[in-house]
């Protein structure tokens, strides 16, 4: 016969769901013959649920205060980076331009040469992370140079992608390999003229388009008044309607 002290330790594990089925059965059998341990179990449970149920709402202003400080730090950091970047302005100009080319995906005419394209893309893909970080920085303070490439939105994300993985804000995952669906998604994500009013809400879908070895990330915002996609330079209105996206992803 094991001592009650042995069982009492196990009770703590039972409460925390850290006990094997076998141990659970053994413990329950002991409770049937030992009212003392059964009472300890009840007491532990009572305290445990009081603790778990005692959650309080944080003060309303808290989130704003945190984000205020975050954005202040963000501005300070970017200012510092901009100063640093300015001293490299000359060589950066080239990189930024190349970066935009990549972020915007290839202009339509590139798609003609299907066979060589993956090679070409993978060759440049290694420089993407670095470049894109600098881009965000540059974009934040100064948009001069951003619109240099007249074709920047002439082709959209899905072009030539052989796979897309979409994650929704509700944490659902969609993997799309069907060429027709990919092409449809490409159509939906084609930037259009329209209000540039920024989306108010959080991102609804994170899309990753795989073109050979290159992965292009697009953030999609579905708002009541339209759909926006962020190809790395801030959200722009796109051709798809909110209903189109509901049809695709539910």
């Amino acid at each position: 016969m094991k001592s009650c002290e042995y069982y009492i330790e196990k009770i703590s594990l039972l409460i925390d769901g850290e006990l094997s089925q076998e141990d659970r059965d053994e413990l329950r059998a002991h409770f049937a013959v030992c009212s003392e341990c059964a009472a300890v179990y009840k007491a532990f449970s009572a305290v445990s649920s009081s603790l778990g149920n005692s959650l309080e709402e944080p003060p309303e202003q808290l989130r704003g205060a945190i984000m205020g400080e975050v954005m202040r730090l963000d501005r300070a950091k970017k200012k510092k980076q901009i100063t640093k970047l300015a001293s490299y302005a000359a060589c950066l100009g080239v990189v930024v331009f190349a970066g935009y080319k990549i972020m915007n995906l290839e202009p339509a005419d590139v798609s003609a040469d299907v066979e060589t394209q993956p090679v070409a893309k993978s060759a440049v893909s290694t420089s993407v992370p670095e470049v894109s970080e600098q881009l965000d920085t540059a974009e934040a303070e100064n948009t001069a140079g951003v619109a240099v490439d007249g074709n920047r939105y002439s082709s959209s994300a899905g072009i030539n992608a052989d796979k897309a993985i979409i994650a929704s804000a509700t944490n659902e995952m969609f993997t799309i390999v069907n060429p027709q669906t990919l092409s449809w998604l490409d159509t939906l994500l084609t930037p259009v003229e329209g209000s540039n009013s920024a989306p108010q809400d959080f991102i609804d879908y994170f899309a990753s388009f795989y073109c050979g070895d290159t992965c292009i990330a697009v953030d999609i915002y579905v708002e009541d008044y339209g759909v926006f996609a962020d190809f790395g330079e801030g959200p722009v209105p796109v051709a798809g309607t909110p209903a189109d996206f509901t049809d695709l992803f539910g």
Binding site: V70, M71, E133, D136, A169, I203
Partner: peptide, 21 residues
């Protein structure tokens, strides 16, 4: 989660406002 990772990724890319999520 995928969702959290994506937020983290975009904060690190310089979109600090996403940190609010």
């Amino acid at each position: 989660s995928v969702y959290e990772n994506e937020i983290i990724r975009s904060v690190l890319r310089g979109k600090s406002e996403r940190f609010e999520a």
